[in-house]
Write a protein that binds this DNA or RNA. Structure first.
Length: 800
RNA sequence: GGCCGAGUGGCGGAAUUGGUAUACGCGUUCGACUUAAAAUCGAAUGGGGAAACUCGUACGGGUUCAAGUCCCGUCUCGGCUACCA
């Protein structure tokens, strides 16, 4: 009589054994080949662990477990990304200190993750809010500063009046605050910036060193936004001033009939003295600044603008005079903040020209004036020395002309902006800088790091836009590290992207007190082999992380430029209603309840079986129970064991096939078909009167990476051998994969008409003869034109 | 508007990469066990048709002995991004 399957009891037992035996501890001095799996470390929110988190943890867990059994030294770590707004807001709401809130939340997450039996190396657990960790985040910031990669700039920032915080472009895309969804305003503020733009080309080229999945790679390319074009200088009639424009089509310059500058362009201020309609212009500028980004970038809105009266530009190629407009459809942050308008071939310029009754000169033959002819490649017209040329030749010739005449030249422009690195909040890494009236900005000496956050009662954000730290005089007032005089600390903190921009390095050597990670450890572990994350982080986090790593590499601090070899993305788990899980919709599945009901193994199995890992999938309890039933079936195989050696003859082929398939599927993220093939194998066992111990051991061994607890227990209870986690991963015999008898489909004119079963050593001719007999009635009175035989699969007889 | 995905039974999804479409799971129906139900086990399950057959992978064409898979065009849905010059 076998014991009943008590999932919770078994799971607790094995989780303890793994910890006690250090089963999943990675070693920094191993002779084994290394493999580094990384999941995006979670944000320990108050809501607790989500079944969506688990999907990726289990997926990489199954890979990591297979790799260990295949003899690799596997690093599969976890930590906590705990700075930033959600933790701060949670703390404010619950009237607790953020660090305490974080501590609580981490404890909850940790407890939950442990009940799932993920094979994380807990000895390497890290926490971005631990001073021992953020000491190095600060230290690395100082390296940016020392290499002139960090600078302070008065910048118009996106200000969220509701969250009382400055937001990066990335966090306020569409003019809406990412956190609260409210409207974003503009404010001018001195901010620390990192020169990420300087790394645009490196970040683009670096992608060649990676194997990111295409959609992730594309997100990176799009975000960097490289475009080849030219700058052209337009002089101002009668003044020592100019407007430089960026264009991807310098060859259309003969069709440029006016210029448009952005409302923020400093050209306006420099020339405002000769502008005769100053009031109108200033009014327009003010109105534009009050517009939110969402209004500003709404394509459907009319293109507005006012002319700068009393001032004209000269087309440097044709010599023609051109009016200059201020228009907010031109963005100050992109290119030079000024464009030459070619209304015949650009929709936006066309709309603007029609509205202001401006000249429209076509310069490309066959171009549709109503549409952008930039897509086509017509012959140039009305373009003097470019007439008759195609696009490529005309661009080349124009670039040459611009360079020879010193009025411009080739220019590569990037959409990527420098990184706004300041936040006016409490719960972040203090930026380790001190301001002294005499010496200016002075970095905190490295041996004084970390600059710790003070323990205070009030950390709510303020209305004046200053960080809450600014009110804590004891903390703010300090001495200048350079001259010893009175000085003030920087009160802005780092964005929550900072701590996650280098955490994979700390995992390699998490307890190092001398440095953020030793060179030896970094050389050993090297690039992360497999990085899993959501698509929502495929642009920003990944870009910041790559930028940071590339920078450290360039300073000789990290041995490899690119941090991640492979970046994959998982799909979301949706609620039973097919919608994204959310508290307000009440469709959230709590993993704790699931585990209580059916156990962690069934949960893990279902998360892998639910569908294609890369795609979203909706949760169903019935699907979960299906997986539970499968595990019950496996459990009951204990009753079927016989005393024979080796594999059961009838099962041998299928077992070998299954070893091959499961190994391949887990390694290529096809977890759903891996589970399915194990179900098929179990169904075959079920049909046997009895099975051998080896049959059973192979099944549970293959199932172990996905359902590690029940399989270890069965292995132990049935005395099948060493613990599975200490055993070598099963190998298959290629010779045994081929079936003795083969099913061959017989088609007539491509339609399935019969099926024959043949021994695998039968010759092609014999098979064709059998096939013809099988479908004889379809051949009567017809002539056979052709017979196609596909090895071991199909015979297709073509008749006329 | 741009880029990237996707479209297969009642449902989640398979399909050796051009070779037996719908594996596996769910659901449903029938049967066994039971006083009964649950659980479990067995059988059936794309549509039409009594059957022979026939129609079927969003839609319309094409290539091929053979198309869910390749090519051309169209539609729908999802994601990212967006006045990027």
């Amino acid at each position: 009589m076998i014991e009943q399957y008590d999932a919770n009891k078994i799971e607790r037992k094995w989780q303890k054994i793994w910890i006690d035996k250090n089963a999943f501890t990675a070693k920094n001095d191993s002779k084994k080949p290394k493999y580094y799996y990384l999941i995006e470390f979670p944000y320990p929110s108050g809501a607790g662990l989500h079944v969506g988190h688990l999907r990726s943890y289990v997926a990489l867990d199954s890979m990591a477990r297979v790799k260990r059994m295949q003899g690799y030294n596997v690093l599969y770590p976890i930590g906590w990304d705990a700075f930033g707004l959600p933790a701060e807001q949670y703390a404010i709401k619950n009237h607790i200190y953020p660090a305490d809130a974080v501590k609580q939340n981490i404890a909850t997450f940790k407890k939950q993750i442990k009940t799932v039996g993920i094979s994380f190396d807990w000895d390497r657990e890290i926490n971005t809010t631990d001073p021992e960790y953020y000491k190095w985040t600060q230290w690395q910031f100082l390296q940016f500063y020392k290499h002139n990669m960090a600078y302070k700039d008065k910048k118009e920032i996106n200000w969220c009046p509701s969250c009382k915080i400055g937001l990066s472009n990335e966090e306020s895309s569409g003019g809406v605050c990412e956190r609260c969804g409210g409207k974003v305003e503009k404010r001018l503020k001195e901010q620390w910036m990192l020169r990420m733009r300087d790394y645009a080309e490196i970040l683009l080229k670096g992608l060649d060193k990676t194997e990111f999945i295409d959609r992730v790679k594309n997100a990176q390319i799009e975000w960097i936004g490289r475009s080849e074009g030219a700058t052209i200088d337009f002089s101002i009639k009668g003044r020592d001033s100019k407007i430089t424009v960026f264009t991807t089509r310098p060859d259309t310059i003969f069709g440029a009939t006016f210029l448009v500058v952005s409302p923020e362009n400093k050209f306006i201020l420099e020339n405002i003295d000769v502008v005769t309609n100053q009031d109108e212009v200033k009014k327009y500028q003010k109105k534009a600044s009050e517009k939110s980004d969402i209004e500003r970038t709404d394509v459907t809105l009319e293109k507005t603008g006012v002319m700068l009266n009393g001032i004209v530009a000269i087309n440097p190629v044709s010599g023609k005079e051109m009016p200059i407009y201020v228009g907010d459809y031109v963005l100050n942050d992109y290119g030079t903040g000024a464009i030459m308008a070619v209304p015949a071939h650009d929709e936006r310029d066309y709309e603007f020209a029609r509205k202001h009754d401006l000249e429209i000169v076509p310069v490309i033959k066959g171009g549709d004036i109503e549409k952008s002819a930039y897509e086509g490649d017509g012959e140039h017209i009305n373009s003097e020395f470019l007439n008759g040329l195609n696009q490529a030749d005309a661009i080349a010739k124009m670039l040459q002309y611009l360079e020879e005449n010193h009025i411009g030249g080739k220019k590569i422009n990037y959409r990527l902006q420098d990184w706004v690195f300041s936040r006016q909040r409490f719960w972040g890494e203090p930026i380790p800088m001190v301001y002294c009236e005499k010496c200016g900005w002075v970095p905190v000496p490295e041996d004084e790091l970390p600059v710790k956050l003070p323990k205070v009662a009030a950390y709510e954000p303020t209305d004046d836009g200053e960080s809450p730290l600014a009110r804590i005089k004891d903390w703010v007032n300090t001495t200048c590290p350079k001259c010893g005089g009175e000085a003030r600390r920087e009160t802005d903190t780092m964005p929550n992207w900072a701590g996650s921009s280098w955490y994979w390095l700390r995992y390699m050597d998490p307890h190092n007190k001398e440095t953020f990670a030793s060179e030896k450890a970094m050389k050993y572990w090297n690039m992360v082999d497999y990085y899993n994350g959501g698509m929502e982080h495929a642009a920003r986090h990944l870009l910041y992380a790559r930028f940071w790593n590339n920078f450290l590499h360039n300073q000789g601090l990290v041995p490899f430029p690119e941090p991640f070899k492979k970046r994959v993305a998982h799909g979301m788990i949706l609620g039973p209603d097919g919608l994204k899980m959310s508290k307000s919709k009440g469709n959230v599945i709590n993993p704790d309840n699931v585990i209580k009901k059916v156990g962690a193994d069934a949960l893990r199995c279902y998360e892998m079986f639910i569908g294609d890992y890369k795609e979203d999938a909706a949760w169903t309890d019935n699907g979960l129970y299906g997986c539970k039933r499968f595990l019950d079936k496996v459990w009951n195989f204990q009753n079927k064991l016989n005393d024979s050696d080796g594999y059961t003859k009838e099962l041998e082929v299928l077992i070998n096939q299954t070893i091959k398939k499961v190994t391949k599927d887990i390694n290529s993220m096809k977890y759903n078909t891996a589970v399915s093939s194990l179900m098929i194998l179990a169904n075959a066992y079920e049909k046997q009167k009895s099975i051998t111990r080896k049959d059973f051991r192979t099944l549970i061994h293959l199932l172990n990476p996905i359902c590690p607890h029940i399989t270890e227990e069965l292995n132990e209870v049935c005395k099948l051998g060493k613990a599975l986690y200490e055993s070598e991963w099963p190998k298959y015999d290629e010779k045994k994969i081929e079936q003795a008898d083969k099913n061959i489909a017989v088609q007539v004119n491509g339609k399935l008409r019969g099926l024959i079963v043949v021994p695998s050593d039968l010759s092609e001719n014999e098979i064709i003869t059998l096939a013809k007999e099988e479908v004889n009635k379809y051949l009567l009175g017809k002539t056979i034109k052709k017979t196609i035989y596909v090895q071991g699969r199909i015979v297709n007889i073509v008749v006329g």
